[in-house]
Write a protein that binds this DNA or RNA. Structure first.
Lengths: 156, 156
DNA sequence: CACAGAAAGTTGCCGTCGTCAACCAATCGC
DNA sequence: GCGATTGGTTGACGACGGCAACTTTCTGTG
């Protein structure tokens, strides 16, 4: 391949990527919506992701999630409030910093997540059933790398 | 690896994927927003993706985009209207079907997309500069496969 | 010790986006 | 021809995130 062909195929790949990601964004929102509803009928999709993260990453403060999810603190605040209203997350003051609060999944939250995880494990998520674990890992790795790349602000 | 480990790592990979995709959703929106504004200061992010698609896939009807983008026809209608208001897309009645209209990128639309593409090509998109073309293709392929998997409705 | 500023959260306002549903017009099938 | 279907538009609504103003609680420097 000469240089021009390489450049052209790069451009193609990037355009392809844009369209695929665009579709992904909308589809994944629906899927996450389903999953959230499975956990709790009133659980909002965005909150579901945070609940899952809070469960896995122990007591943490909301500002930590701002960084992880790369999201505005106002948005976090609302989602967290929603989770607390539903009783899926507990909030307690941080003993080491009077400004901060620590979030952790409530018993009910953990239990509900487990129920859904079991359901999914048993039916092995019909949609992704034929993806081997290592390919899933590789894909997740690519996604993370892509996300990292996107995290770098454009230099213009 | 025994069976349980495989199952566990599958579950891990799926959770990992969820978080990554969640981050992706927000970041990509910002990036696409930047890109849209580079094309035209008033161009909305979602419309930018459609403009790009219309340019590449010739005159087509709005309903075709519903299928491609997996999106409600009402949403398509609004985005298309927006593109027409900005003069980036032309709409003409389909000679073969009085109900339908055919969309194509206007001269201005094509020109503006090219300007931005040139900019990006010359700076080779700083953020993804170190991704070789074949890896981009592989990633796009995984994304499409993932999208296809998500397109299958959950069987519950 | 005091005081400027930074950090943690909360809240209101706003823009983007997509779904749902009602609706109109044109076309297709029988 | 006439009912059903398809292409498209519009309005109402909800989810979501960004921005900015504001409160409270540190933190650091003089």
């Amino acid at each position: 391949m000469d240089t021009e062909t390489v450049v052209a195929s790069r451009a193609d790949a990037l355009r392809e990527l844009e369209t695929e990601v665009g579709v992904l964004i909308r589809r994944i929102r629906r899927v996450i919506g389903e999953r959230a509803r499975a956990v709790h009928p009133d659980l909002l999709p965005a909150s579901y992701l945070m609940l899952s993260y809070v469960r896995d990453h122990g007591p943490l403060r909301a500002s930590a999630m701002c960084a992880v999810f790369d999201i505005d603190k106002g948005a976090i605040s609302r989602q967290v409030q929603h989770l607390i209203d539903l009783g899926l997350v507990d909030r307690e003051p941080d003993p080491e910093d009077g400004r901060a609060t620590l979030l952790s999944a409530s018993e009910d939250g953990v239990r509900r997540l487990e129920v859904v995880a079991d359901q999914r494990r048993h039916q092995l998520d019909a949609r992704l059933a034929d993806w081997p674990a290592d390919e899933l890992h590789a894909f997740a790795g690519s996604l993370r790398r892509y996300n990292d790349a996107l995290g770098i602000p454009a230099d213009r």
